[in-house]
Each structure stands twice: as C-alpha cells, then as structure tokens.
C-alpha cells in the first residue's frame, strides 16, 4: 500500500470540502467508509489515492420512515439494513440481497453508500498487470478472450465486460430510489437507475458522480406490494460467493394475475440492471412457469456471452423464472414476512 494522508472531518460540509478530487484511475483522493473495496484495491496497488477522507464522523447512519417515504443514511451498514424490520417485513428483496452478500464480517463494516459503488471483481482489473481499460484507459481488455466465467453478458462493450459485483443495488433498483449526494457546491438528487453508466467507450467511468461528490443517502416509497419481493442468487457455494446470476423480483398480484412486476438482475451485467421489457411483458399475465421463463428470455434478449460465461444467459433466464415463481408463491396472509432468512445467512 502506498502511503496516504488520512482525515476524518466532523461534518458533511467539511468532508466534501476536504476531499481531493479523485479523477480517473484513482489519481486523486477518495472517501473512505467501510473500505471493503477501497482498502482491498489499495493493497493491490490498483488504487493509489494520496488521501482518504473518512466519513465515519458524519452520522448518516439511520433508517427512517416518514410520510410513506423510507430514508437510508449512506453509512448504514449492510448488516444493520439486512435486519431492519422495514426491509425484512416490507421489502424482503432488499434484506435478502443484503444477507446473501459477502460474509458477516464484511456486512458488519460495509456501508450502503459504499456498497453501490463496489468495484468489479474482474481479475484483469485487480491484477494490476493485464491490459484493462477500466484501470488503464486505452490499454485494452484482457478479460475478452481470457478467464471470464464471472463476467457480464449484458451491458458490455468491446472495451469492457466487467460485472457489477454487488447485490443490494440490484434490489434497490426495483423501487425507483433517489440518491442524495453532496459536493462543496451543494446537494443534488439522482435517480438511482441513472447513477451507474454503461462501460461503452469509457469503462473507467462507472457512475455519474463528480470527483468530490459524496452519497449521503437514499430515499424511496415502499408500496404495499413490495412485501411480495424476493432476491434469488445462484452461486457456486451456499454462502460467501458472488452471484453467477441473481434476480430481484417484486410482484403486485391480483389473484394469479400480475398487475405490475419489477425485475432487477445481478451477476450478469456491467451495472445494476433493470429489465424493463420483461416487466412490461409480465404486466397482465397469469403467473405460470412458462410465463416466468418467457420473462427470463426477454430479460436476456440481446445478451452476449463470451468464452466462459455463455451459460449465464440460460441460467439467468431460469433464475428470473424462479424469482417470479417464488415471489408469486409467497404467503402474505399470516406473519408480515414469509420470506424470512431461515436458510441462515452465514
């Protein structure tokens, strides 16, 4: 790790003034929250910020609800949110996505502000040696033609196929959340779906955030039908593994008929992915396995497989189907939460 300056300002204002703009390829300073991505990449010398601005003294660590709107502070940890009754009972897709991610140790320190900005696990980005347009713009993409089993099939470009590796964002995207940010020039609000940008010709640019822009929180409405939501994550082992394909689904049902469906995908795309065409297809349909599989097929229309990851297209289709069927099967008549976490999070 390269030596860096460290500061821990006491207010959001002070923090956004203190941070040194990051610029591309990690030349500037960075905000530090849980550090589970940042410190890791600094140890690998993939990121070498000269200064870290720790947000630990900024508060921003509560989950509140008022006037039907939920507000999550950016420093709320994954563990805290995964157990919060608002999510467990009224949006199980969110709590599922959180406890099915990482390990208890990581969830205890990783924050939701940082989590949505989690960097890719693409091994060619992390090795600090291979050509990688995300790490070293213009150098090429070694993942194409390489070991790319874990990489993306949706939203890729000829310059980058790195997967967005997180889980929470794939569920958050269902609820039309707003991201609240601050810079030293003031605050702004961003639709969550607009936060991440496709790699296209500039994979080094992952979000629309400015260099000195700090996520302070999220807010969104939780409709009653969000109780009928799930997060299905297919992975190589039962815990502590990245998604090979995951699907977040929320259904508004009228008997067996789908009034409205929301569908987010993970482990398969370069950014948190909302499958709007599949949502439209589902509207008004009767729940069945065939319908669910067709929605999955539509969700992966246009997907492009590479040497070792073409399986993600049929896998993703079936994961979507399972998520739709699981959501439809949820019994919401009794206890407020029937999704639960009985499988154990560890």
């Amino acid at each position: 790790m390269k030596p860096f300056r460290y500061q821990a300002p006491g207010s959001v204002n002070a923090a956004v003034e203190a941070v040194e703009p990051m610029g591309i390829a990690g030349q500037g300073g960075a905000f530090l929250a849980g550090g589970t991505t940042l410190i890791d990449l600094m140890k690998l010398h993939v990121l070498t910020p000269p200064s870290l601005t720790d947000v630990k003294n900024l508060g921003l660590d509560t989950i509140e609800e008022s006037d039907g709107e939920v507000r999550i502070g950016a420093r709320v940890t994954m563990a805290q949110a995964s157990e919060h009754p608002i999510f467990v009972e009224r949006a199980p897709a969110l709590s599922d996505a959180l406890w099915k991610a990482a390990s208890p140790q990581l969830r205890n320190v990783a924050t939701l502000g940082g989590n949505v900005l989690q960097r890719t696990r693409c091994p060619y980005f992390r090795d600090n040696v291979s050509p990688c347009n995300k790490r070293d713009p213009g150098s090429g993409c070694a993942a194409i033609g390489g070991i790319n089993r874990l990489l993306a099939v949706l939203g890729t470009s000829e310059n980058c196929i790195a997967t967005y590796a997180g889980d929470f964002a794939n569920a958050l995207i269902l609820f039309d959340a707003t991201v609240e940010t601050r810079t030293d020039e003031g605050s702004r609000e961003i639709a969550f779906e607009d936060l991440h940008v496709l790699p296209e010709d500039h994979p080094e640019r992952e979000t629309i955030l400015g260099d000195d822009e700090l996520i302070t929180g999220y807010r969104f409405q939780l409709p009653d039908w969000a109780r009928r939501s799930v997060y299905v994550k297919a992975r190589d082992r039962e815990s502590y593994a990245f998604a090979l394909a995951s699907a977040a689904v929320a259904l508004d049902l009228d008997g067996d008929t789908i009034r409205e469906a929301r569908l987010g995908l993970g482990g398969v795309a370069t950014v948190p992915w909302r499958a709007r065409e599949a949502e439209e297809f589902l509207q008004g349909k009767t729940v069945s396995e065939d319908t669910a599989l067709e929605a999955g097929r539509i969700a992966f229309e246009g997907a492009q497989g590479y040497e070792h990851n073409t399986f993600k297209i049929p896998l993703g289709r079936q994961v979507v189907a399972k998520a739709i069927l699981d959501a439809a099967r949820m019994d919401l008549s009794g206890a407020p939460n029937s999704s639960g976490t009985s499988e154990g999070a560890n």
Binding site: R121, P123, Y124, D127, G146, I147, L150, D236, R237, E238, S239, Y240, A241, F242, E343, G344, N346
Partner: peptide
C-alpha cells in the same frame, strides 16, 4: 486468475 480465497472457492460451513 483466481489467486485469492474469494474466487478460489472451498466449502464454507453452509
């Protein structure tokens, strides 16, 4: 390319 125990997988308790 998976020279870490995040991607070189071994069974966990679950």
């Amino acid at each position: 390319m998976n020279d870490n125990i995040s991607e070189y997988l071994v069974p966990v308790n679950a």
